[in-house]
Design a protein around this nucleic acid. Structure first.
Length: 482
DNA sequence: TGAAATGTTGGGGCG
DNA sequence: ACGCCCCAACATTTC
């Protein structure tokens, strides 16, 4: 009887699972395992919202395995390596396999584990994971890494070869009862407070939920190019946490979207598909950049920004985190984040610009908050996007590109629906004043039951002043850096 | 995947 | 008819 271990991490699916398929072909008995080693990733240990997701996704995976006669073995260990070693010994496994991860710390850990396994006489087989192309698969002409999105995306599109879709296995062999597994609850993945309870209304973690979202995307595709920018409209895919946890592969998403646009004479659909695929390519780009510049979660890619005069203010940061800045579009976004564990892409850019420009707080403060509160928190995406907004990253928007949150609000939420949804205290204010209540006539505010400074804050920062100060700080920095 | 300031153009009102 | 001014609309430049 040969035994293999399938090490699940961020590939919590049964369809399109090359690792599982390989193990099933190579060995008689397959032991699916998840190893909880929370101390392993240091400051970038999984954030609280993502742990909520992980809990439910592991539960879904276990249920899917049980439907097929198997089960998920859950272990806790000081390190993944120790956990795997113990399980190999217990089961006398001759093969361990996994989908590769690309975060620098993960990749280094995998190398060490593989070396140790091989020394112990265990075969290790790893497979590409969670990207369309591995970071090393795309290189510039001079065999370097890309720092600019457009040529990178072009290179990926030419190189792209999608694997054939693979159905989930029908039947799996039972995992012997002698192999112990911890109850999922004992991993303490869920927050102690009721904070995340409201996430359940917004999300269905797990493979089935991922495929539901993919089906729903088909109906949104024709209007995707415009709707994705409107936070009040359900126009985006909501696939990011599913992709992060590998509940669905980007290859399957790419293929499905392409198939929906192909052969239909609908220009909107073609445009929507291309726009969406571009978003998938940004995800690829983020991993490419993190792979080649592993220090970027802590340090700006543009090293000159290390000397930028970021402001330190616990009070401003706190107001931003809680959605109490007095700027409705900013507050609506941050309250959506707190309530649902997600934030509309347009709003992400707006709140990030406000933090790094008007408030001039360090982009890392924002990145850290997102890391803990987003269910789709992903080190590569989070790092790239925050540095992009702050102006210090790969292919970044220049620092002086400052979003005016009121103009953005008027442009992308003209009827003020998104604002009303997340800021019920402003609901009675006519839409045209909802974007900037401090500009509303006193009588109008009174009629809407709003008392600025009492039940909705005054702006913590005057927009014109914040903008001017940010530009000034940028000028001073530019003069000094030479 | 900005916004604001500045520059240019052209139509219309008017003496 | 003409020059002049105003100003909206659009384009370009600057931050």
């Amino acid at each position: 009887m040969t035994v293999s271990i399938v090490w699940f991490r961020r590939d919590l699916r049964l369809m399109d699972n090359e690792v599982l398929a390989h193990a099933l072909v190579m060995t008689h008995r397959v032991i699916p395992v998840y190893i909880h080693a929370p101390g392993e990733n240091g400051p970038w240990a999984m954030g609280a919202a993502a742990r909520w997701w992980l809990y439910h996704s592991l539960a879904a995976l276990d249920a899917a395995l049980r439907e097929r006669g198997s089960r998920l073995v859950i272990r806790r260990a000081a390190t993944s390596r120790a956990g795997l070693r113990a399980l190999v010994k217990e089961t006398d496994a001759s093969l361990v396999c996994w989908h590769r991860l690309y975060e620098p710390a993960e990749a280094a850990r995998e190398d060490a584990i593989e070396a140790a396994m091989v020394r112990a006489g265990v075969t290790v087989q790893t497979f590409p994971g969670h990207l369309l192309l591995e970071p090393e698969a795309v290189q510039t002409g001079s065999s370097g890494s890309y720092k600019v999105f457009t040529p990178y995306a072009r290179a990926v599109r030419t190189k792209l070869v999608l694997p054939k879709p693979r159905p989930a296995p029908h039947r799996l062999r039972v995992v012997p009862s002698s192999i112990s597994s911890l109850p999922l609850a004992s991993l303490k993945l869920l927050p102690k407070s009721g904070w995340a309870a409201s996430f359940t209304r917004a999300w269905q973690p797990g493979e089935a939920g991922a495929h539901k979202r993919l089906r729903a995307l088909g109906k949104k595709l024709a209007n995707y190019a415009a709707d994705r920018d409107r936070p009040a409209v359900d126009g985006t895919s909501h696939l990011s946490p599913h992709l992060h946890f590998g509940e669905i592969t980007p290859a399957r998403v790419w293929r499905t979207v392409a198939a929906q646009a192909a052969g239909r004479n609908k220009p909107g659909l073609v445009r929507g598909a291309e726009t969406f695929q571009r978003e998938l390519l940004w995800r690829e780009f983020a991993h490419h950049v993190l792979h080649h510049f592993p220090a970027t979660p802590e340090r700006p890619l543009d090293a000159r920004f290390a000397k930028f005069s970021w402001r330190r203010s616990a009070a401003l940061l706190h107001a931003w985190q809680r959605g109490e800045t007095g700027i409705p579009m900013v507050d609506a976004g941050l309250r959506e984040l707190w309530t649902t564990g997600t934030l509309h892409n347009r709003t992400r850019m707006i709140v990030a610009s406000f933090l790094t420009k008007h408030l001039r707080l360090h982009w890392r403060e924002g990145a850290r908050w997102f890391w803990n509160t987003l269910v789709d928190a992903d080190l590569a995406n989070n790092t790239l996007n925050w540095q992009w907004v702050a102006g210090c990253g790969a292919d970044a928007a220049p620092y002086f590109r400052i979003f005016n949150p009121v103009l953005q609000s008027r442009k992308f939420d003209p009827a003020g629906e998104y604002l009303a949804r997340w800021l019920p205290e402003l609901k009675k204010l006519p839409a045209r004043y909802r974007h900037a209540p401090w500009l509303a006539p006193a009588q109008m505010l009174a009629r809407a039951g709003i008392r600025l400074g009492v039940n909705y804050p005054y702006p913590v920062m005057d927009l014109a002043h914040g903008r001017a100060e940010a530009l000034d700080a940028f000028q001073r920095w530019k003069r000094r850096k030479r």
